[in-house]
Design a protein around this nucleic acid. Structure first.
Length: 731
RNA sequence: GGUCGCGUAGCGCAGCUGGUUAGCGCACCGCAUUCACAUUGCGGGGGUCACUGGUUCGAAUCCAGUCGCGACCACCA
């Protein structure tokens, strides 16, 4: 006897176990079948499952289960991401609680500590993916730092280098002195903030700045070329009274200057401002570094050297005021400030970095989308991709992180005396200096053993090698941008270049992810996929919307409106949560967390259960019974719904498919047909069983647990698991 | 500033390439119900589809403009 109501808690775990023991998630590479492949966008290994992950898993599992039931050889590859910067920041917060920091460790030990930290969380995340009923192939599970992934990514770098697409160069980067790393433009947040705007007397001019402490790095002042007030000064030199004595500056004319802002005169600090850097390039101005990588002022600041930016700003302002060099201060100036994800001010700085020339990679990646080789759903997002690709700059792929894949570049010690190295010496203290100096008192082996970080000047001599080329070489300490390795994820997970999996399953069918990483991730995968294999790594991209909080706002810790999906799984079940989220994603737009709908679909699970309870005592007749008009009607409706649902799913219209099936099962099968057959149950038994069976199959991709549970209650064991049945009316 | 999107019943939304009385969920109102399910069934009220103009035999659906909202990208010293 079936219980009166469906209780998800009774079934979810045991059904998961049945699937896993039956091995139905494991792909076989059957040459007579069509492969259907999805690579799961790897969740952060040290994070917790959030509503976005739930939606992603729900949608991909629908596609996978649907294709499995249609007879395709499906492969859905799970994995987790090391999430370089984010994870390292999280770990360093933990360290801080113990009164430690990364400066207590050499590079190797620090890496191992994070590894241990992540393993624990990784298991939790994988457990959550399982809990969701994701029919992923765990035998092919990958982590972005698995040795084979590291080897593959390093090889790609080597190939890029051989093709002349890698270069090192000074570049204006967003350097966070606090995190000790650079950030890509796309990783930086711009926040509005009120800061004092200082009007400084600069020789004959007055100019406005929020950063007076960088004046030691000024190499020009700029005015608009057509500004009548200053036109005659262009090309001349002015004498400026400074804190470290008088100096001379050139006046340049540049379109960039807005004559209406401030006084119409700008100080140009090429080393610490992206726009000034561009102007500096246009006018051949020297760059003078004022702020060092430690966030403190350099020697050029004279007596201010060694001060932090904030202390220096305060002191400089005081001294300027004392000298009468400040005309006025606007205390209410609101401007946009660049901050890193941890909330620190970033310091635009010139630093040697590793770059990929993207021109030759970009062209085919743009073309693949324009000519429809890669189709993006919803279609209007295609424009976002195209615009982004067109505006893309060369890609800075190095990060001054430890947690990541180390760049396989090696510096020969004797050829690179100018390497700046920090290491822990045999006494356990951190020593920083130029390699040539360090080697006077330390052996190279000791330096290498205690190595923390190195900074190689732009012209450093290096070789690229996936192995250590010799004992007298030191490896680059920078790691790859996470997007560089995850940009090769479809290849890495499939064992590129010569595995059987790669030959059979590549290119994958669908890449499903949130649209917010369309430019960060999807574009990189297309570029690198085509570069390495000649083919884009997937045929379609489906972008789901962002799940917002109940109040319609973005979820954020500070607003306290973050929804923990586990609570909903507990209360309403995985099926209801999945179905509720999917039914709200019709056009891939953002949507508020649909609490009401989730409750509604919990009721639907119960409805399915009770349809089965109605049919349970009615034995399926061996003999073919006469079908009356009602039977004919429901069978016709069933076929129409199955075919339409198929069409919707082919177009990634999950909500329409879900609602169509829901409408059929509840309001046609249950409300109408079941009522009509109440006085002819035996005669209708064949139709009842057929429609129930097909309804369960149609619902299965959306609500796998309750359908499997009901299936096993009603249909004999010989028929096998529902997950392995055929989708109705598919050939 | 650039780009994209949105404005449809009290609330949350669907209406894809234009076509008969504009739909769904929640909420609301009335009735029913020992017979699969109260996590139920049947019925009902409520909308000049933001505004203006245009294309068309016909527009919520296409075009232009106006107003309001949101997001992303860029960013002024």
């Amino acid at each position: 006897m079936m219980d009166k109501n469906y209780d998800h808690k009774k079934f979810e775990d045991s059904i998961n176990k049945q699937w896993s023991e039956a091995g139905v998630f494991t792909a076989k590479r059957d040459p007579s079948k069509k492969p259907y492949t999805i690579v799961l966008p790897p969740p952060n290994a040290s994070g917790k499952m959030h509503t976005g992950n739930v939606l992603m898993i729900a949608i991909e599992d629908i596609l996978i289960r649907w294709h499995r039931m249609r007879g395709d050889e499906v492969l859905w590859i799970p994995g987790t991401d090391h999430a370089g910067t984010e994870t390292q920041i999280t770990f360093e917060k933990e360290l801080k609680k113990q009164g430690k920091s990364r400066f207590n460790y050499n590079r190797k030990d620090f890496y191992e500590e994070i590894w241990k930290f992540v393993q624990n969380n990784k298991n939790l995340v994988e457990g959550q993916i399982k809990k969701m009923g994701a029919s992923v192939d765990w035998t092919r599970n990958k982590f972005t730092l698995d040795p084979d992934v590291v080897a593959m990514v390093s090889k790609t770098f080597e190939k890029l280098n051989n093709d002349g697409l890698i270069y090192r160069g000074d570049y204006m980067v967003n350097y966070c002195p606090n995190c000790g790393t650079t950030y890509a433009d796309i990783e930086i947040d711009h926040i509005e903030r009120k800061d004092p705007l200082y009007y400084l007397k600069y020789g004959p001019f007055v100019l406005a700045t929020v950063r007076p402490e960088t004046k030691f790095g000024d190499t020009a002042v700029a005015v608009h070329p057509d500004d009548p007030r200053y036109k005659e000064w262009i090309g001349k030199e002015i004498n400026v009274e400074g804190l470290n004595g008088p100096f001379k500056l050139k006046v340049i004319g540049d379109e960039y200057v807005d004559p209406k802002f401030g006084s119409g005169v700008v100080k140009v600090t090429p080393a610490h401002d992206p726009n000034d850097y561009e102007m500096g390039k246009r006018h051949n101005l020297p760059s003078i570094k004022v702020v060092g990588l430690n966030g403190k002022l350099t020697q050029v600041a004279g007596k201010y050297a060694g001060m932090t930016v904030f202390t220096a700003r305060k002191t400089v302002v005081e001294d300027l005021e004392a000298k009468g060099l400040i005309e006025k201060i606007d205390e209410n100036y609101v401007h946009s400030v660049s901050v890193c994800k941890a909330g620190h001010d970033v310091e635009p700085t010139i630093l040697p970095n590793w770059f990929i020339k993207i021109d030759s990679l970009r062209a085919p990646a743009l073309e693949a989308v324009k000519n429809g080789e890669v189709k993006i759903f919803p279609k209007w997002r295609t424009l976002t991709y195209v615009r982004w690709m067109e505006n893309m700059h060369d890609w800075a792929i190095s990060r001054q992180n430890i947690w990541g894949i180390r760049i396989p570049a090696w510096y020969k010690a004797v050829e690179n005396p100018e390497l700046v190295i920090s290491f822990i010496n045999s006494e356990g203290s951190v020593v920083t200096g130029q390699l040539s100096e360090l080697l006077k008192n330390n052996k190279l082996t000791e330096v290498k053993k205690g190595l923390q970080t190195l900074i190689a000047p732009a012209g450093a001599k290096y070789i690229i090698s996936t192995n250590e080329p010799g004992e007298d070489y030191i490896q680059e300490t920078d790691t790859f941008d996470t997007w560089f390795s995850s940009g090769q994820w479809p290849l890495a997970t499939l064992g590129y270049p010569d595995s059987e999996d790669f030959k059979y399953f590549y290119p994958t069918n669908v890449l499903e992810t949130g649209w917010e990483i369309l430019s960060k991730w999807v574009s990189r995968m297309v570029m690198l996929g085509i570069y390495l294999t000649g083919k884009p790594p997937f045929k379609a991209v489906y972008l789901h919307g962002i799940v917002r909080a109940l109040d319609g706002r973005k979820m954020s810790k500070s607003l306290g409106n973050v929804i923990n999906p586990e609570e909903y799984i507990e209360e309403f079940g995985v099926d209801a949560l999945r179905m509720g989220l999917v039914a709200g994603t019709a056009t891939g737009k953002d949507f508020s967390f649909p609490r009401d709908r989730i409750i509604g679909y919990k009721k639907f699970a119960n409805k399915l259960w009770n349809i089965a309870r109605f049919i349970e005592p009615i034995r399926a007749s061996e003999v073919e019974m006469t079908k009356n008009g009602d039977d004919q009607w429901i069978l016709t409706e069933l076929e129409v719904v199955a075919r339409k649902a198929n069409q919707y799913l082919e177009k990634f219209r999950f909500a329409e498919a879900a609602e169509l099936i829901y409408e059929f099962v509840w309001h046609k099968f249950a409300d109408v047909y079941l009522e009509k057959v109440k006085d002819r149950r035996e005669e209708a038994s064949g139709t009842l069983h057929k429609v129930l069976s097909d309804s369960l199959k149609l619902c299965h991709p959306f609500m796998p647990f309750v359908t499997e549970a009901v299936w096993q209650e009603i249909f004999p064991q010989e028929e096998g698991l529902l997950i392995s049945q055929r989708w109705p009316f598919s050939n």
